[in-house]
């Protein structure tokens, strides 16, 4: 396992604004593992919502900022598979469409150092046992961007299996999309809701207390559905489970 890696946290705009505990968990976790965490305050948003809704120019402006802010770091971590996928998949296309070869080159260079949390832990820092304690029954939903975008595979599950006290239960039809889809959730609310209900039905069938994923945006949709149904299942980001230890709360 590597020590003393200097990691920049790209917290993402959604986590920054709505789920600060996820960002704090990443900071706590990486420091506990002996790494240095920095939060460059010039960061804002990766531009995912803009590019995926049909506003590539706005996304390109946000991409330029991202590239400047994070260009100097050895490793960048984001607790959001979909934001990392935006950087990795969409940025090269946006830069190519902008017709700026220097930007394209810089974007590709920076994108190569941006990791989802489980990629950073398993591939870069070389650990699956992060010393966490979480005495709950948990089921894991592999979000579309972690599964088919970043191909995270079983990395999150390997991390969860090492958490002491945690009972991991398998989610039926796990690979199915939850129906969030960014602005899809408000543009096509009926279909989005139908998909969400099918997903939470599977979640409830596992008997888990906690639904875990690597993306708070999908969890907002599923958590909102679970809460409306009074299902009694909480949604918790992977980072917060991995940051939990015996003495302190998550």
């Amino acid at each position: 396992m590597r020590r003393n890696v200097r990691v920049a946290l790209f917290v993402t705009c959604v986590n920054d604004t709505i789920f600060p505990d996820t960002g704090k968990a990443v900071v706590r976790l990486l420091r506990r593992l002996g790494h240095e965490v920095d939060f460059p305050e010039g960061q804002t948003c990766c531009g995912q919502m803009h590019v995926n809704t049909g506003y590539p120019e706005a996304a390109t402006a946000l991409m330029r900022r991202f590239t400047q802010v994070f260009g100097g770091y050895e490793a960048v971590v984001a607790p959001s598979a979909s934001c990392v996928a935006t950087v990795r998949e969409q940025y090269p296309r946006l830069a190519a469409a902008a017709g700026d070869p220097a930007l394209a080159e810089e974007v590709t260079r920076v994108a190569g150092k941006v990791y989802d949390l489980s990629e950073l832990l398993v591939d870069v820092l070389g650990t699956t046992d992060v010393g966490a304690y979480y005495p709950h029954t948990v089921t894991y939903h592999p979000t579309c961007h972690s599964l088919r975008g970043l191909h995270l595979g079983d990395r999150p599950l390997r991390l969860l299996r090492q958490v002491r006290g945690l009972r991991l239960v398998e989610l039926p039809e796990a690979a199915e999309c939850c129906g969030f889809g960014g602005t899809f959730a408000v543009k096509n609310p009926a279909v989005s809701t139908a998909m969400g209900i099918d997903k939470v039905t599977n979640v409830i069938s596992t008997g888990a207390e906690v639904l875990c994923a690597a993306d708070n945006s999908c969890l907002t949709h599923l958590g909102g559905t679970l809460s409306r149904l009074r299902a009694g299942v909480r949604t918790v980001h992977l980072a917060e489970i991995l940051a939990s230890v015996e003495s302190g709360a998550a």
């Binding site: 986590n15 920054d16 709505i18 900071v27 609310p189 409306r228």
Partner: peptide
């Protein structure tokens, strides 16, 4: 309303991540 017709909104926290980072002098 397409969201809130079927889903609850997450509570907005009192303090954003960046405000916490600043207040606690880099977390």
């Amino acid at each position: 309303g397409g969201w809130t017709d079927t889903r609850d909104l997450p509570p907005v926290p009192r303090e954003s991540f960046r405000a916490w980072w600043r207040r606690t002098e880099k977390g």
